[in-house]
Every structure is written in C-alpha cells, then in structure tokens.
Design a protein around this nucleic acid. Structure first.
Lengths: 135, 135
DNA sequence: TTATTTACCTACTTAGTCAATAGGCAGGTG
DNA sequence: CACCTGCCTATTGACTAAGTAGGTAAATAA
C-alpha cells in the first residue's frame, strides 16, 4: 500500500484544521473527537508537521494547533510525503534510486521512474482546499 | 510500497522467458539462476501465472514454462495485479471501495479513485516488450 | 503561586505482512 | 523404473503498521 492510515489521518487533521479555522488555536482533543481518531496516535503524527512549518502549536490552556498558510497552499503530495516518508511505488526509486544495486542494468528502471513522477505530480496538483466541504 | 519484490520478480521471470524464447519449454531452474532469484520463491509465484493463462508449464524431463502470447501482448499492469493482488494505492479503493466505511462522506475518495486509475492506466500502457533488451 | 490544560517525547505491545526456506507430492519423459 | 520438473503447503525470521501508555515541558487561568 502506497498510502497508509498514518497518511490519511494526517490529511484529515489538516483538512479539519482548515475547516474549523477561527483565528485561534484548535486543541487536538477536539479534532480527534470529530474525526474519531485516537488522540494518542495523532500526537505522534503532528510533530512532523510542526517541524516542517505546516502548522504551529502552542501549549497550555487555550492552546492547540493552527495552520500557517491558506488551504490552497498545501498540496496533498507535500503532506503525504511527510507522513509516509516517501511516495516511491517501488524500493528501486527510493531516494532517487540510490540504494538499487541493479540500477545500471535494470530495464524496468525508466518505468518505475515514470510511475514515481506520475504519482507525485498528481498529488502535487491537489490541495487541501480540494478536500474541504463548501461552507 | 505499492509494488513488492514478489511483483518485480514475477515481471523479471516473464521478461526472461520472452528473451529466451526458443519454441520449447524453459525450466525454472535456469531462470532462477540467470536472474539470481531463489528457485523456491519463484515456484511460489508462478502458479498464479499458469492459472490465469499467462504461461503454461509442463512437468517432467524437458519440461518447464513457456509464454502463451507475444511479449507485446502482456501489459505490466496485468502481471503486477496478479502478483500483488491489487494495485490500489490506498485501502479505500481496494475492490472498488467496497470495504470503505466512509466512502459516502469522504471528500478524498475522488482523489484516491483518480490516483488508482492513473496508476493502472500507466502500467496498462507498458508491455513486456518494452522491458526486453534489443537483440 | 498553584492547578490545569495542552503540546510533546519515548517506549511498548500487538497483529500482520514480506521474503525466503523447506519438504514432499504429482505429473510426465527417457 | 528412475529421474526431472512443476506444484502445493507449512514454517521461519525480520520488519512494519497501528495503536496504547506514561510521563515531561510549557503556557495560561485562577
């Protein structure tokens, strides 16, 4: 499977934050409840988003998370690459095919590279805005 | 990962059979040696191809496997769907999204369906001939 | 200052899958 | 009959995914 629960959950959180944007910070507790996802599991995913500047979190009462950009400025590819680590369809093209021992001789390499590009370009063409409900 | 070793090995076997086509049957022992893949592991993959009519195998001395069509008549999508079971990038679209409980409400569903179609169409556009070395 | 809220960090458990190994049976040829 | 080759089934070990759990650090309200 190319995209796991981790990736789908991460996406749902970002979309939820976008839909419930109110200028303030939204506690993860609320998001977890709305999305029916384990709070503890989400807490494990979110720091990655913070480290990469997709969202910002503040501690304490009245704290929570907030998006740092507009919904249309987040591509699905960007979000999924962070949660999944990589969107390579085969190990052959992970990290640009660095680890593949047959890379020189393998006739399938161009096929994998093409597929990899296709997937990434498709997901980079979709944004969080595309997943939001009309309001 | 969308495509595992199992899928890649299966592909290499079919390509190998195509390249060494000689009118007769080719024992898997030879293919395993040429491709440097465990014979026992290959024996586990091939029956799927036989059952679906991609290759035919005959027992006994002088036996082995043989393609049933021309190389350009095998698409990579067909081969990989058999070895991997499915090429769905997310569980949401496995078996046409049958098992997904959120399929009605999920705003991401169209995105996954689009990605699924893209991947399958791409791989259905490539054939075994495309992976064969010029001779 | 104190209690509370929330983010954040680290370890653990459980279940499942992938890759490979192994042994033996079934079918067919010389 | 002996041998070869496909074919079936079970098992192992390593790894990953998903979720659980407990605790620490930071910030605010009281």
């Amino acid at each position: 499977m190319l995209i796991s629960s981790r990736g789908k959950y991460g996406l749902r959180v970002i979309v939820d934050l976008a839909e419930h944007e109110n200028g303030g910070y939204i506690p993860m507790k609320e998001v977890a409840k709305r999305q029916d996802i384990s709070l503890k599991y989400l807490e494990q995913i979110l720091p990655t988003f913070v480290k990469n500047g997709l969202i910002e979190g503040v501690h304490g009462k009245g704290g929570g998370y907030r998006l740092t950009r507009k919904p249309e400025e987040y591509t699905l590819g960007e979000i999924l690459r962070l949660t999944e680590g990589d969107l390579a369809p085969v190990t052959c093209v992970e990290n640009g095919g660095e680890a593949c021992e047959r890379k020189g001789a393998c006739p399938a390499m161009p096929v994998w590279q093409g597929l990899d590009a296709l997937i990434n370009e498709y997901l980079d063409g979709k944004t969080v805005r595309d997943l939001m409900c009309e309001e």
